[in-house]
Simulated scan of single mutants.
Amino acid sequence: MRTVFNGRLDGRYEAMMFSFMVLAPLLVGMVAVYVAERHVRHGWGHHAGVGALANIIFTVGTLAIGQEGLICVIIAVPMFATIGAVGGLLMGAICRYLKRPRQTLYGFVLLPLALGAIENPNPEGRVERVERRILIAAPPAEVWRQLMTVDAIRADEVDSAWTYRIGVPKPLAGVVRETPTGLVREVTMGKGIHFQQMSTDWQPQRYVNWRYHFDADSVPAGALDDHVRIGGKYFDLLDTAYTLTPRAGGTELSMTLDYRVSTAFDWYAAPLGRWLLGGQSETLLAFYRRRAEARHRPAAHPPAG
């Protein structure tokens, strides 16, 4: 089924279509339970467990044969296992209450193939927003300086974010230069990823809004799975805004991130994106806090005498 849904038939049969992402794991769960029920009758818990396990093997198998990358597999496993459990329960009910389970299963085999031929492979998508804030014990001038010049980022400074834990390359640097048309931030990440952030609006030490710009070579081949490629067909980062507000004892730094998901299952992709990008935003804000506070902290002086 994964070989059929490879996107090579004039844009039809894409792996990110509803007919594959939902119906394929349903079918895998059903087939696994059908085979098991041919030998011994099992309970409902067994049906759900077999359906879920079969889909875990299914997703790991696509990684083993090079059909999918690690990031896609990690993201897909919870969804596939859940739908597979439903498929297992459905097949268990069919085996118990219908006289012709094999013929019913054949009908379900044809369903993703039939729907894949008519489904729109280019869903409109939706724009989502993540907002986070943090209090920093440093003045706005120091926080602003950190936002404008971030270099030599160590892996241990950002590795608490799940986006980086599951394989997204970590940021290395983000250095800003001023041009006649505004600020330009050059961002570099691991595996050769590089892109620009253009300021659409900014006020020194108060506010800056970045619009992402990706060139054709910004994400080298193999740096990210195609299905989660930044600036790709299914996912894109749009804007990131930072607002600095003076507070007693320091600065409140707020971050707003807008992103796009364009899948046939945004009901799963959008909340997952909010969770992953929300955690990433919190990690980045904590990173800015540590650096700003370290720079602002007065150096210790030895005692007199």
Rank of each mutant, 00 (worst) to 15 (best):
M16C: 05
S160G: 05
A64T: 14
V228T: 00
P169W: 04
R12S: 02
P298S: 14
P139K: 05
L147E: 11
T59C: 11
E119G: 11
G29F: 08
V228C: 04
M91D: 07
Y259M: 01
E68A: 12
D156G: 00
T263P: 02
H296P: 05
W144P: 07
G192K: 08
T188L: 00
P302I: 14
V22W: 04
K170F: 12
L9R: 10
E282Y: 13
T256G: 07
G305L: 04
M79E: 10
A36Q: 09
H42T: 00
K233S: 02
E252F: 05
W44F: 06
A85D: 06
R297I: 10
V168N: 04
A52Q: 02
D215Q: 10
A64L: 15
L238S: 08
H46D: 06
E131N: 12
L135N: 09
T263M: 01
F214Q: 01
L89Q: 00
F18G: 08
T200E: 12
L183K: 01
L105A: 00
S19I: 12
G273R: 01
K233N: 00
G49M: 08
L53R: 05
V184C: 07
A286D: 02
V86E: 04
Y212L: 11
E142G: 05
F195D: 02
P246C: 01
E131Q: 01
G107R: 05
G87Y: 06
S254E: 02
E128A: 11
E157H: 01
F5E: 05
A269E: 04
M1A: 14
L63I: 12
V86Y: 10
L253S: 03
E142W: 08
D258I: 03
R274T: 05
Y97E: 01
T59A: 13
V184E: 09
A155V: 03
G49T: 12
P298Y: 09
S254T: 01
E131G: 06
S281Y: 04
A264P: 10
A54T: 12
Y34H: 07
F214C: 06
W267M: 15
G174M: 07
V219Q: 06
L90A: 09
L135K: 10
S281M: 06
A36K: 06
E186S: 14
P101W: 06
D236Y: 12
L276I: 06
A299C: 14
V60H: 10
R145H: 11
T62H: 12
